[in-house]
Amino acid sequence: MSLTERLGLALLHRIDPERGHGLSLTALRSGLVPLPGVVTSARLACTLAGMSLPNPVGLAAGYDKNATAIAPLTRAGFGFVEVGAATPRPQPGNPQPRLFRLTEDRAVINRFGFNNEGAEAIAARLAARPQGPVPVGLNLGANKDSADRAADFARVLAICGPHVDFATVNVSSPNTERLRDLQGRAALSALLAGVMEVRSGLARRIPVFLKIAPDLGGDELAEIAEVALASGLDAIIATNTTLSREGLKSVSKAEAGGLSGVPLFEKSTRVLAQLSQLTEGKLPLVGVGGISSAEDAYQKIRAGASVVQFYSAMVYQGMSLVPRVARGLDAALARGGFATVAAAVGTGRGAWL
């Protein structure tokens, strides 16, 4: 990390977290953040659900909620970028304050509640984005006051689907009341059927992913795996934030919302490994939760992830973390004797079961 980046992070950490979040996006759009461009190698280049990626390190949803910084994010070293979540109608989200840094724990708690400018505004920005080698996807959400939340996911896909490379059904945010109830077998099957019907009507087929919570038991994970395989999903993202507060030290540990960052790594990786076992390699998995180094990314891949995503670690390590993780992962794969990312997937799964 450069001295400039250290000073910038120190400044951002002296102000309100949500304001700091906004300022970081402004800095990106303004060209104030040095960007490495596409990071790739023969070892890092891989595929996910038919998409070619320059590397397997992606940006998780939640950072660029309104798709306002797509161009610089695709030059930041990521192999793929996910924006959103988007809901059919604009909504303000939950009352502030709703974002908390847990510095001692290298973690973040948020209870944003799908605050966004709505699918139409986000679709316009997605349509205008520059095309390039880094796929861009959208996280689909539901309005808090919707009479039919399951139908909201299909509505957002209908509006934004023509302008994205993939879409993620997010039924795992803990910050919209009863949203996680949609992870049950019957509700999830019906929801996904509606989404897949919309996808079939798009001019081009885009991959559809499902993002799940880390707070699921073995039987619940087995149900999700069955539904995912039966529904025609293209990948599962494991996992979203957790409601657990086990082992936290920071003063904000009791705040309501979803916890992300380092404390989530073990829980999310165990869920990932279980899903890898349940799906038997029939469905790609995206490993998310607690990644803050190249070694973490390597462990996720060996636990069963085809690719990985992160976001919270940038709060503490800045945007330069992205190429550091990608290049460090290349070196870790080489040390492990793996010529490709795919060769390493699941090779260390047993350690997490």
Rank of each mutant, 00 (worst) to 15 (best):
M1Y: 05
E5H: 09
G8Q: 01
D16A: 15
L25S: 10
R29F: 00
R29Q: 10
S30T: 04
L35A: 04
V39I: 13
T40H: 03
S41Q: 11
A42M: 05
L48S: 07
A49R: 08
G50K: 09
A60Q: 14
A61W: 10
A61K: 07
G62A: 07
K65P: 15
K65L: 15
A69L: 13
R75E: 15
A76H: 06
G79L: 09
G84P: 10
A86N: 07
T87M: 06
P88Q: 04
P90M: 08
Q91P: 13
N94D: 01
D105G: 00
A107W: 13
A107H: 14
A107S: 10
R111D: 02
F114A: 06
F114S: 09
N115R: 07
A121C: 02
I122Q: 14
R125W: 08
R129K: 14
P130S: 15
G132T: 12
G132D: 12
V134E: 00
V134S: 06
V134A: 00
P135H: 09
P135M: 07
G137Q: 12
L138I: 14
L140T: 05
A147P: 10
D148G: 11
A151Q: 12
R155W: 06
R155A: 15
L157Y: 06
A167L: 03
V169E: 04
N175D: 06
E177P: 14
R178L: 14
R180D: 07
R185V: 02
R185I: 04
A187T: 07
L191T: 13
S200T: 00
G201P: 15
L210T: 01
P214F: 07
E220T: 07
E223S: 13
A228L: 10
A228M: 08
L229H: 06
A230F: 11
D234S: 14
D234I: 09
T241L: 00
E246D: 15
V251Y: 00
V251A: 15
S252K: 09
K253P: 03
A254R: 12
A256N: 12
G258Q: 03
V262S: 11
T269G: 13
R270I: 13
R270T: 01
V271N: 10
V271H: 07
S276Y: 15
L278M: 08
G281R: 11
E295K: 13
K300Y: 03
K300N: 03
I301G: 00
V307A: 09
V308Y: 11
F310T: 12
F310L: 09
S312D: 05
M319L: 15
M319W: 15
P323Q: 06
R324S: 09
R335V: 02
G337W: 05
A343C: 06
A344V: 02
V345D: 10
G346K: 07
T347L: 01
G348L: 11
G350Y: 05
G350S: 14
